[in-house]
Design a protein around this nucleic acid. Structure first.
Length: 835
RNA sequence: GCGAGAGUGGCGGAACUGGUAGACGCGCGGGACUUAGGAUCCCGUGCCGCAAGGCGUGUGGGUUCGAGUCCCACCUUUCGCACCA
């Protein structure tokens, strides 16, 4: 490519400024493709840098500006690293399986196998003109059998390790999507996708034992360079709490509960029925005045007395029928007495056993010891049902007999009414009580996690079939790896029904297969897997995307992974990242990966809003990238997106704003075009240039793109002040600074400066520290803390010299009446004369 | 309720370990060049005031020579989690 100056935009022959982005960008897209500029040598490249962005779901609406915002942010970072000398791998693919695609296909009546390639083609067209440094020779499409073959392989690795299991259980069922949802997909009792109230159903589901990894998933967070909010979100989700499991012996059914105490001994707690509870407050055990079981608790039947059976059954039926939304939002306490009593292992007293829906079967043991004095929920319940409330913790100014003032006391304090533990602080008491409990075999210290196992089966069509075959003789048989992929058949009737099984179950010709072990007629699993499984390992696939013999090549993986920087949306801060970490840990434990955390650095980008409002189709305020790129060019569009606000916070897209960015690029382009090599660069301009190189080089790694752009604009203002002719040395480095943001026009300008190689094969400019300091400095002068002016003094000027300079300025001196009480001089910054 | 964050001009947003608040851009006002300009260039633009000057970073206190920045109390708001024992 020789240096060339394109003709001025059409219809404006006298146009003094401004390039034609349409022509420039098309030319450089073609150049990049021909030269292979964006294809790193994965095998040989030095200093590898893996820049990953969350791959998009290729929707029918096309690329969203939010996608482009994220991708551009990642691309700028990647291009910057390349300019610094790294071999940068920046892949992109499509997350095209899942309910979202399938529902859309159903809505428009087009089969997903037709729809998805069409959407992908459109995405690719849009992505191509966005100027991303993507290596399209290493892409993935999760719906491609060449990809999901290995998704199924991942399932088999977990299955082999005993980490995939099938379990019948209560699942969340969305009556609208007609499918099972993961707990994570239920928000406030509603389907996160369609908002329909979720029902409970009992189905056989495949689960992954992610809960076995709770502790590692939690502890490893400390080693990761992730934003604090993302780490916190993961911590909350994993939900570790330290506590204890305590066993309460249930007394045999009695006619008269009042006489129970005579039968109580605590010496033989292992006999008979016991209820195990989870608590984080073992220190309050002396205040446990009743037990509560979840309505679904398996022991309820056994312990309920004949007299109470009717009432208990009625309550359980009511609770079961209740959908999750009422159960979780209705805070009014309800419950029923089982008629049974258990022994408080600390006091030896009998306490009633209740059932109530405020106790959840999924958490802890599904049973609690109620300490109404020191737990708000228990207090409310005890008040409503007239159960005894005992104080066992006394706070500041409280004693053993201080009555409750309408609420539980949940604060810190001293243990009271608890025999030998009286007088201890709450934290010490937790330890001492548990020592005592453990000695008496009434319980153990445990750590509890909220994280549940990951339900990966979906009774849907548009996903990878789970590679399992059921044989009457051999039982559950994994599909041999050699037989992968289990190809998703192209069926016309892919609409789910409420039978609780996948549409694939209607196709015997597909599911009827010989058993891989014995050869007898057997049946395939007809469920498909969760989309989150597709995306839990795709980053491993990219470098090896052209290999069909292995999921990921060992040498390439060793070289390129873990991902150096991962950029994506906060909406995936919990699930996708957690699942990816889990799968990576499992493969690590199998010896297939030498790292257990896939993403060394993760940053979540912010959200783009439009004119102060959220973008939505219904409001009709969605930004269509095509229109803006047509009008302003991709370079201006990219740079404007980054200029809106801090990358990690997002910004407010206003149509008017983009013109300022185009003007900036036009000015730079004109300065380069008109630059000369004769003479020498201006000192002041060069000082500003070096300061700008420093600032941009610091801002980009911090993802502070908006201020980097502002710094370059500021430099342009200095550079062009007085319409001077620019020296080439004053503009050449700026082309490199702007290149990550506006890659096409940067290439164009680089060519205009006489370079034949891509600007991205040049090296990021250095700066000279010596250029950043000058001999004189401007010092702000304050009088009693109020700014009154500024004086120019030598850099090393001492206090006397600075004072003299200040007093020489009449507009400052007039405020200094009398003798200063104190003079504060911060060299290079400020002089404060205190009167 | 718990956890994390955020409140700065007409607007988006700057401000390093406390040191000229409002960089940069939009918008707006004025000017230049023009038949014209939604093109380009220059100047101005926090508020009050003719000026000198005063007032200003959600509110009220505090620390300091000096506070957008630190401390205390409160208000508003965004995002997670939420009957998790």
């Amino acid at each position: 490519m020789t240096a060339s100056v394109p003709s001025a935009p059409s219809g404006s022959a006298d146009e003094p400024l401004g390039y034609d982005p349409g022509a420039v960008e098309a030319r450089w897209r073609q150049q990049w493709a021909e030269r292979g500029t964006n294809r790193p040598d994965l095998a040989e490249g030095k200093d590898p840098y893996y820049a990953l962005m969350m791959f998009p779901y290729p929707s029918a609406e096309g690329l969203h500006v939010g996608n482009l915002f994220a991708f551009t942010g990642c691309d700028i970072y990647a291009r910057f690293r390349r300019l610094q000398g790294h071999t940068v791998f920046e892949p992109l693919g499509y997350d095209a399986f899942g309910i979202h695609s399938e529902n859309f296909a159903l809505k428009v009546g087009v089969h997903p196998t037709e729809l998805i390639p069409r959407n992908i083609a459109n995405f690719r067209r849009q992505l191509d003109r966005a100027g991303l440094m993507v290596d399209w020779t290493h892409s993935v499409d999760t719906t491609d059998p060449a990809y999901y073959k290995w998704t199924q392989w991942v399932f088999l690795q977990l299955y082999k390790k005993g980490l995939a299991y099938k379990k019948a259980g209560a699942v969340n069922w969305c009556p609208s999507d007609k499918t099972v949802l993961a707990n994570e997909q239920v928000i406030d009792g509603r389907c996160e996708r369609c908002g329909t109230v979720v029902e409970q159903r009992f189905l056989e589901q495949w689960f992954f034992r992610i809960s076995d990894y709770s502790e590692r998933l939690l502890n490893n967070l400390d080693t990761l360079d992730w934003s604090a909010t993302t780490k916190q979100a993961q911590r909350n989700w994993i939900g570790r709490s330290e506590g204890a499991r305590l066993r309460f012996r249930v007394l045999p059914a009695m006619q008269d509960a009042g006489s129970a105490s005579v039968a109580v001994t605590t010496e033989t707690p292992v006999d008979g029925i016991q209820v195990e509870v989870f608590t984080t407050r073992p220190d309050t055990i002396f205040g446990a005045t009743y037990l509560v079981l979840a309505p679904e608790h398996p022991l309820v039947d056994e312990i309920t007395t004949d007299a109470q059976r009717g009432a208990v059954e009625a309550y359980r039926t009511g609770a079961a029928k209740q959908d999750l939304i009422t159960r979780k939002t209705n805070k009014e306490k309800t419950g029923e007495f089982t008629g049974a009593f258990a022994v408080n292992p600390a006091t030896g007293e009998p306490i009633p056993v209740w059932i109530a829906d405020y106790v959840l079967m999924e958490y802890g043991t599904g049973a609690i010891m109620a300490v109404p004095g020191h737990d708000e929920r228990d207090y409310e319940f005890a008040t409503k049902f007239a159960l005894p409330i005992v104080r066992v913790v006394a706070g500041e100014g409280q004693g053993a007999k201080t009555p409750f003032d309408g609420a539980a006391y949940t604060g810190d304090g001293m243990i009271v009414n608890s025999a030998q533990f009286d007088g201890l602080g709450v934290e010490i008491a937790k330890v001492k009580v548990m020592e005592w409990i453990e000695k008496r075999h009434a319980g153990t210290v445990v750590t509890n996690y909220r994280l549940h196992d990951w339900c990966i089966s979906r009774q849907r069509y548009w996903g990878p079939p789970i590679p399992i075959i059921y044989c009457d003789d051999c039982g559950t048989v994994p599909v041999p790896e050699a037989d992968l992929p289990v190809v998703l058949p192209n069926i016309a009737d892919f609409k789910p029904d409420d039978s609780g099984v996948s549409p694939l179950a209607r196709h015997e010709d597909w599911y009827r297969v010989p058993c891989p072990t014995c050869g007898k007629s057997a049946r395939r699993e007809t469920d498909v897997s969760d989309t989150f499984l597709d995306s839990s390992w795709y980053f491993l696939r990219y470098p090896s995307a052209d290999r069909d013999d292995v999921p990921f090549d060992a040498a390439l993986t060793k070289k390129w992974l873990p991902v150096t920087t991962y950029i994506g949306g906060n909406e995936h801060a919990v699930l996708h990242l957690l699942y990816s970490r889990f799968i990576t840990m499992v493969l690590h434990d199998e010896g297939m990966l030498d790292f257990e955390e896939p993403f060394t650095r993760f940053r979540a980008h912010g959200l783009i809003i439009r004119e102060g409002a959220k973008m939505s189709k219904s409001k009709g305020n969605v930004v269509n990238p095509d229109e803006y790129i047509d009008r302003w060019g991709a370079d201006s569009f990219r740079t404007y997106l980054m200029f809106l606000g801090p990358f990690e916070e997002g910004g407010d897209f206003r149509d008017a704003g983009i013109s300022g960015v185009k003007r900036f690029l036009d000015r730079l382009w004109a300065s380069v075009r008109d630059s000369v090599v004769e003479g020498s660069p201006d000192d002041e301009v060069m000082r500003k240039l070096h300061a700008t190189i420093k600032k941009v080089g610091e801002d980009i790694p911090a993802l502070s793109y908006n201020t980097a752009i502002a710094a370059m604009m500021e430099y342009m203002n200095v550079l062009r002040r007085g319409e001077r002719v620019c020296h080439r040395a004053e503009v050449e480095p700026v082309v490199q600074l702007v290149a990550p943001f506006a890659p096409h026009v940067a290439e164009e300008m680089w060519g205009m400066l006489g370079h034949s190689e891509s600007v991205f094969d040049s090296r990021w400019p250095g700066f000279d520290e010596g250029m950043l300091v000058s001999d004189t400095v401007e010092l702000v002068v304050q009088v009693s803390g109020k700014t009154r002016g500024k004086v120019a003094v030598a850099r090393e000027a001492d206090q006397a010299a600075v004072m003299a300079a200040a007093m020489a300025d009449a507009s400052i001196a007039k405020f200094v009446v009398g003798e200063p009480r104190k003079i504060v001089l911060v060299p290079g910054r400020i002089l404060n004369i205190v009167l």
